[in-house]
């Protein structure tokens, strides 16, 4: 089936098999490999992207369900807030300054989930950040610095 999807502001058209998962479409067909796959059970959140501005797990959607919709992946995040070349999104910046990543595998999904969280709740407390990120697993950091980064980003007034 032919689908048309806008990803990071750019229009894509492809013929896909209905059973193609959205994350495989993004990685293998479109070639954007920033979005990771960390599990088979919809649990880890490494595949989190934005669908029409909201966080979703791209491993638990078929590409055909995204037909006609707008997606944002980690590659397009900085440009979505008009960061100039080489500049990062404030959330990415906060992750860096708070040392909120070690191996970095969970980071793209973690950042996308965090941006969506602040869209819905611009001024969360620590508990709300922890709960808001319950769908994202990190095997390295122990979450402490991730929570700190999200709180710092919120306090910086950035989304």
């Amino acid at each position: 089936m032919e689908i048309a999807v806008k990803i990071n502001g750019e229009q894509h058209r492809h013929d896909v098999e209905p059973r193609t998962l959205l994350v495989h479409y993004i990685r293998d067909t479109v070639g954007l490999t920033g979005t990771n796959i960390g599990c088979d059970t919809s649990s880890c959140g490494a595949c989190t992207i934005h669908l029409n501005g909201e966080s979703v797990k791209s491993c638990t959607m078929f590409a055909v369900q995204a037909d006609g919709e707008e997606l944002l992946t980690i590659e397009g995040l900085a440009a979505s807030v008009n960061a100039t070349d080489g500049q990062m999104h404030p959330m990415q910046e906060a992750f860096r300054s708070c040392h909120a990543l070690q191996c970095g595998y969970c980071t793209p999904g973690m950042v996308m989930a965090s941006v969506s969280l602040l869209e819905e709740n611009p001024n969360p407390n620590e508990q709300e950040v922890r709960q808001g990120l319950e769908g994202n697993l990190c095997r390295c950091t122990g979450y402490h610095n991730i929570v700190k980064a999200v709180l710092e980003c919120a306090q910086g007034g950035a989304k």
């Binding site: 979703v56 808001g132 319950e134």
Partner: peptide, 9 residues
């Protein structure tokens, strides 16, 4: 129910 990503879908 689940997590925010699950509740968005």
């Amino acid at each position: 129910v689940g997590d925010p990503q699950v509740r968005h879908r």
